[in-house]
Design a protein around this nucleic acid. Structure first.
Length: 429
DNA sequence: GCGATCAGTT
DNA sequence: CACAACTGATCGC
C-alpha cells in the first residue's frame, strides 16, 4: 500500500496530516507524548484538553480547526508526487467534549468521518451540525461515509439524553436519604452531571483529575472534591461495581446510577442480594418509580443498589438510520468492528445509498470490493481483525486455577484500594 | 524508562 | 448474549 495522505484517529508514521476526532483512549492508541509524525488537526476544546491528557506533547504540532469552516491543506498526491489540495471541515459530533466529525474533499472525492457521534433530532446542537453538513454538501455528492456503527442494530433503541437525564433526576429525588454515585469515564457525561447539579441545586463530587477537566471545560461552580458538601458523587466507571456499592452500603445507604447505552442485564443474578428477574421485553428488570405529579417512570434495576439509565453518547439505531438517509452516501464503512454483533451498515442502509450497488450485489461482496478501491491512499481507522479471530483468541484465554485465584486476589486488592480512594476523604464521622 | 501489546474489568 | 472505555501486567528495546 502507498503511504497515505491523511489519517483520522490513526497515529502511525506515513501520513501528511493527522486528525483526531476526540480524546477517548480507544481513539488515541499510538498517540504518545513523544509522537511527532506531522501536524495534528483537532477542535479547539480538544486542543485545550490536550496538555492534561498528554503531558509533554509538542503542542506546536496542534492545528485548531473551528467548526463549520473549510480549511485548505496543500499536500502531495501519494501516487504522483504532485501537489494536491485536501479540504477539511470539522463539525460537532455531540459525543464528548471536543468531539468532532471530519468532512474531507480531495482527489479521493468527498468523504465524511464521523468518529463517535450522537445524532439527536431533539438537540439544538445537532440541528446546527445538520445545517453545517447540508450547507457543505449542497453542491457535492458524499462518496464515502465512515460511520460510528457502535449501535448499528435495530435492537439498540434508547431515548434522547435529556429524557435519560430526567430519569436520573427522578431516581435521585425518589431516594432523598441516600448517597448517590454515578459511574463516568475520564471524559464525557459532563452535561448530565451539570444538569443534575442545576436541577437539584447541589454540587457534585468528582475525583481531583476530573475536577481539573471540569475547570478546563468551563464548569467552575458545580463540582467539588470535598465530600462533605454533597451526597452525589461521580466516580470512575472502572471502580463502579456491585462490590463497591455493597461496601459503601455498609457505611451509608447508597445507590449507584450507571448511564449506558447498553441494557445491563448480564450479571443480574450474581449480586448477593435479592434476585431480580429480567422482564421479557428488554431483558432487564424494571420498576415504576412514582413521581410527585403521580406519573410513573420506567427505570432499569441492575441489582438492589444499582440503576441503569439509557444515557448514551453514541447514536441509537434510529438516529444512525436518519443520518444515513439524510446524507445518501455512495458507500458506507463501519468504523467499529469490535462488536460481536457487528453488522455491515449497508445491510440496513443499502437502500439509502444513491447508487444501486447494494441491491445489485450482496453486502458482503460489496464489503470486499470496497476495500481495494481508490481510497486506499487514505489510512483510516477501519475494521481490522474479524469477530471470528477475536472469539478464537478469547477461547484461548483459559485460565488455570492458580491464575484464577491470583486474578481474584489482585482484583480484591484493587477494589480495596479503590474503596479507600473513594472513601478516605469523604465520610465525615 | 518508554511504547506496544495483551489480558481483563465494569 | 452484547459495548466503550479503561487499568494493569508484561515484553522488547
Amino acid at each position: 500500500m502507498e503511504s497515505g495522505i491523511i489519517s483520522v484517529d490513526r497515529w502511525s508514521q506515513g501520513s501528511q496530516a493527522y486528525f483526531i476526532t476526540h480524546l477517548h483512549a480507544d481513539h488515541t492508541r499510538g498517540l504518545t507524548p513523544t509522537w511527532k509524525w506531522g501536524p495534528l488537526f483537532c477542535s479547539r476544546i480538544t486542543a485545550k484538553l490536550f496538555p492534561s491528557k498528554f503531558p509533554g506533547f509538542k503542542l506546536s504540532l496542534l492545528r485548531i480547526l473551528n467548526l463549520g469552516h473549510w480549511y485548505s491543506l496543500p499536500l502531495f498526491s501519494p501516487s504522483s508526487g504532485q501537489p494536491t489540495t485536501v479540504q477539511a471541515m470539522a463539525i460537532d459530533a455531540h459525543h464528548c467534549p471536543g468531539a468532532v466529525m471530519y468532512l474531507f474533499r480531495g482527489e479521493f472525492g468527498c468523504m465524511l468521518f464521523t468518529g463517535d457521534f450522537r445524532w439527536e433530532t431533539t438537540s439544538h446542537r445537532a440541528k446546527i451540525a445538520r445545517d453545517m453538513l447540508l450547507k457543505a454538501l449542497k453542491d457535492e455528492k458524499l462518496d464515502t461515509l465512515y460511520l460510528d456503527n457502535t449501535y448499528c442494530n435495530p435492537s439498540y433503541c434508547f431515548p434522547s439524553r435529556d429524557v435519560a437525564a430526567r430519569q436520573v433526576i427522578n431516581i435521585i429525588t425518589t431516594h432523598p436519604n441516600h448517597d448517590i454515585v454515578i459511574g463516568i469515564d475520564s471524559l464525557g457525561k459532563e452535561d448530565l452531571l451539570h444538569y443534575v447539579s442545576q436541577e437539584l441545586k447541589i454540587k457534585i463530587w468528582v475525583w481531583p483529575e476530573r475536577l481539573q477537566t471540569m475547570h478546563l471545560l468551563g464548569f467552575q461552580d458545580n463540582f467539588t472534591t470535598k465530600t462533605s458538601l454533597t451526597r452525589v458523587r461521580a466516580i470512575p466507571r472502572y471502580s463502579f461495581s456491585i462490590e463497591t456499592l455493597e461496601g459503601l452500603n455498609m457505611m451509608r445507604p447508597t445507590i449507584g446510577i450507571m448511564p449506558s447505552g447498553l441494557p445491563w442485564a448480564k450479571k443480574i443474578f450474581k449480586g448477593k442480594g435479592n434476585v431480580i428477574y429480567p422482564s421479557p421485553s428488554c431483558g432487564v428488570a424494571s420498576t415504576k418509580i412514582k413521581r410527585s405529579n403521580g406519573d410513573s417512570l420506567d427505570v432499569r434495576i441492575y441489582n438492589q443498589y444499582i440503576y441503569t439509565v439509557p444515557y448514551s453518547d453514541h447514536s441509537c439505531f434510529a438516529e444512525i438510520k436518519e443520518f444515513v438517509e439524510l446524507l445518501q452516501p455512495t458507500s458506507i464503512k463501519g468504523i467499529v468492528s469490535s462488536s460481536a454483533s457487528y453488522v455491515e451498515p449497508l445491510y440496513y442502509f443499502g437502500d439509502f445509498c444513491s447508487t444501486n450497488q447494494a441491491s445489485r450485489m450482496s453486502y458482503k461482496k460489496l464489503w470486499y470490493e470496497e476495500r481495494v478501491e481508490r481510497l486506499e491512499a487514505i489510512q483510516i481507522k477501519s475494521p481490522v481483525g474479524s469477530t471470528n479471530s477475536n472469539q478464537v483468541r478469547r477461547k484461548r484465554r483459559r485460565r488455570s486455577g492458580l491464575l484464577v485465584s491470583q486474578v481474584n486476589r489482585v482484583s480484591i486488592l484493587r477494589r480495596v484500594r479503590r474503596g479507600i480512594k473513594i472513601m478516605d476523604t469523604e465520610f465525615p464521622s
